[in-house]
Design a binder for these strands. Structure first.
Length: 276
DNA sequence: GTGATCGCCAAGGTTACGTCA
DNA sequence: TATGACGTAACCTTGGCGATC
């Protein structure tokens, strides 16, 4: 299928299709209360409601139980910045066709009735005070219970497979996408925190090494001075030599004239992390 | 075996909202 | 009460990787 074909398909089957704002569609067949939600594609600022987006379903029969076109790419959840992750993702490695796929829709749980968990956050985000279509995303504040459960899950595993995500989203009464985003952000924060901790450790390590270096330089200087003052004592046997580490120039303070190599010193310096 | 596609993730970043001092 | 700082939910972009077709 070429680009032209795709374009024709979009025009023929889906261009300008908008679920009527006053036509709530049922969501969540098995959900308690069988709530309804206005799944209205929200317009971008300055863009009319007929902004083209793709759908292959024009009739109500083509909706799944979640009330969402099974193969449609709706304009995601609506505000200007979060338009169509599925439209833009993999723009480089994947083709235009691919980026018009239903990735985002699937992620949002639109494709599968089993994935449609709840829609209240969407509903809240869909309408402004005047009952019209809001262009702002409604930020959800997770409850303490939700946060605790998410944290607990994150402690067990920092990534979720689709089943786990689904189960967790049901348990939390959140959309799978929300669980996914939470885990992504959580992983990012964890890594950032770890990086900060590592940075502090390295700073301390660096200071320690600087101090040690200064001390060793001083020690070396003293020994060189001593060597100049008493050369015969340092070459009494003709075999004894200063035991100086070639990399850090440290002299074995316990036995400066030993014949044994300073393996421990080399190891310490070649692996700075063990030095701290 | 190879290429296209898909799904997921990481990394690095932005935006917008809620909270609090 | 207004405001700025901060935390964070939600999202974007680019790119990598494994699985599948």
């Amino acid at each position: 299928m070429g680009i032209d074909d795709i374009c024709h398909t979009s025009l023929t089957l889906g261009l300008g299709f908008i679920a009527p704002a006053d036509d709530p569609v049922p969501v969540g067949k098995g959900e308690p209360g069988n709530c309804t939600v206005k799944r209205t594609p929200r317009a971008r600022p300055g863009v009319t409601a007929v902004e083209p987006y793709l759908t292959l379903a024009l009739s109500r029969e083509s909706y799944d139980v979640g009330g969402v076109p099974k193969t449609a790419v709706a304009p995601s959840d609506g505000n200007s910045s979060d338009q169509g992750e599925g439209r833009r993702r993999h723009s480089s490695p994947h083709s235009t066709v691919s980026s018009f796929s239903s990735q985002r829709v699937k992620r949002e749980g639109y494709l599968s009735s089993s994935e449609e968990v709840e829609a209240e956050p969407l509903k809240a985000a869909d309408e402004d005070d005047s009952g019209g279509v809001s262009r702002r995303r409604k930020k959800l504040r997770l409850s303490k219970e939700q946060s605790a459960l998410l944290e607990e899950s994150f402690k067990r595993r920092s990534t979720l497979n689709p089943k786990q995500k689904q189960a967790l989203s049901r348990q939390l009464n959140l959309r799978p996408r929300q669980v996914e985003v939470w885990f992504q952000n959580r992983r990012a924060r964890t890594k950032l925190k770890k990086t900060e901790v590592d940075c502090e450790i390295l700073k301390k390590c660096c200071e320690t090494l600087k101090d040690e270096n200064r001390r060793l330089q001083k020690e070396l200087h003293q020994l060189k001075t001593l060597q100049l003052a008493q050369p015969c004592q340092l070459h009494m046997s003709g075999r004894a030599t200063l035991n100086v580490c070639p990399s850090c120039q440290r002299v074995d303070s316990k036995s400066p004239f030993s014949m044994t190599p300073m393996a421990h010193t080399h190891n310490r310096m070649s692996n700075p992390s063990t030095a701290c």
